Simulated scan of single mutants.
Amino acid sequence: MRYALRRVLGVIPILFVTWTIVFGVMQLIPGDPVNLMLAGVPASQEVRENERRRLGLDRPFLERYVTFLGRAVRGDLGESYRSRQPVTRMISEQAGSTLELAAGGLVVGLGAGLLLGMVAGLKPNTWIDTLCMLVALAGVSLPSFWIGMMLIYVFGMTLAWVPIVGSGLAALVLPSITVGLFIAGGFARLVRSSIIDAMGQDYIRTARAKGLGWAKIAFKHALRNAMIPPVTLLGIQIAVLVGGAVVTENVFARPGLGTMLVEAVLNKDLPLVQALVVYTTAAYVLVNLLVDLLYGLIDPRVQVGRA
Rank of each mutant, 00 (worst) to 15 (best):
D299S: 10
R301M: 10
A72N: 02
Y153H: 14
I14C: 07
R208K: 13
L223G: 11
I152H: 09
V247D: 00
L142V: 15
Y284G: 06
L101H: 06
I195D: 04
G168K: 13
V231F: 08
P300V: 09
T88Y: 01
A170C: 10
R52F: 03
A72P: 05
M37T: 12
L241T: 02
A138L: 14
I238D: 01
L169S: 13
V278S: 03
L159G: 07
L172F: 07
S92Q: 09
L122I: 14
L172G: 03
L57M: 09
G244Q: 01
E46G: 11
A102M: 14
I14M: 12
H221P: 00
V135S: 02
V179C: 00
L15W: 07
V8W: 14
V22H: 01
L134I: 08
L36C: 07
F187K: 05
T98G: 12
K210S: 11
L99Y: 10
R71Y: 05
F252Y: 13
A245P: 06
L172D: 04
A43M: 10
G166S: 09
A226I: 02
T18M: 15
F16W: 12
Y284L: 15
P30R: 02
M157N: 12
A207T: 01
D197Q: 13
V140Q: 13
V302K: 05
G166H: 08
E100N: 15
S44L: 02
I91S: 00
I147G: 02
L134P: 03
L174Q: 07
V246C: 07
L114V: 11
